[in-house]
């Protein structure tokens, strides 16, 4: 057996856990998760800037899952299979990490990988320029922001995205993303 979902999940739980969720990513789940974040994070004023960033990035991460997850493969046992996604927010001092994980069909790997590699390769200024270009020129679908989500995360955090693809079976991959905010 290759990929073990529980192992991945437990690994991401290391540190101070602020919130964690694994299951169907519905609109209500997103609302509840954001409300939970706000009730738990009651930081001093000097961290307000970071708190806003974490909130913003959390919104984009959750809505990325909401719009883009594939159904998990048949042989993976889960309580909630519909729109399955996992999100874990941990804190280490002034550092926050948002980890997300979801199943995707194998043929999506390249487009995701190319997208993240491209955004990771850009300087801060280039990220800003590309963001404005996409905002100005792309048609958005009702699904979301025409690829602005990933770009917005990198722009707000100023950090590179870390990702992993774990082979689940011949057709499915588990896509794991780590975002750091400080």
């Amino acid at each position: 057996m290759g990929f073990d979902l529980n192992n991945w999940y437990n690994e991401k739980r290391q540190g101070d856990i602020i919130l964690e969720y694994a299951g169907s990513i519905s609109s209500d789940v997103i609302s509840n998760t954001l409300a939970e974040f706000e009730s738990k994070i009651n930081m001093s004023e000097d961290l307000k800037r970071v708190r806003k960033k974490v909130y913003n990035v959390l919104v984009e991460c959750l809505q990325n899952l909401y719009h883009h997850v594939d159904e998990p493969p048949e042989n993976v046992e889960l309580d909630e299979k519909d729109k399955y996604g996992a999100v874990i927010l941990t804190r280490d001092g002034t550092f926050f990490r948002i980890s997300t994980g979801n199943f995707i069909k194998k043929d999506k790997i390249n487009s995701i990988k190319d997208r993240i590699d491209q955004v990771n390769s850009l300087s801060d200024d280039e990220v800003k320029i590309l963001y404005r270009e996409i905002l100005n020129n792309s048609e958005f679908s009702d699904k979301g922001g025409g690829g602005l989500g990933i770009l917005d995360i990198v722009r707000k955090t100023g950090n590179k995205l870390e990702y992993n693809f774990f082979q689940v079976d011949d057709d499915y991959i588990f896509y794991a993303l780590d975002v750091y905010i400080s």
Binding site: L135, N136, F140, G144, G145, G149
Partner: peptide, 12 residues
């Protein structure tokens, strides 16, 4: 206070 990327195009 906050807006997501999905709103950004609508605001534009």
């Amino acid at each position: 206070e906050y807006f997501n990327t999905s709103s950004s195009k609508c605001i534009l």
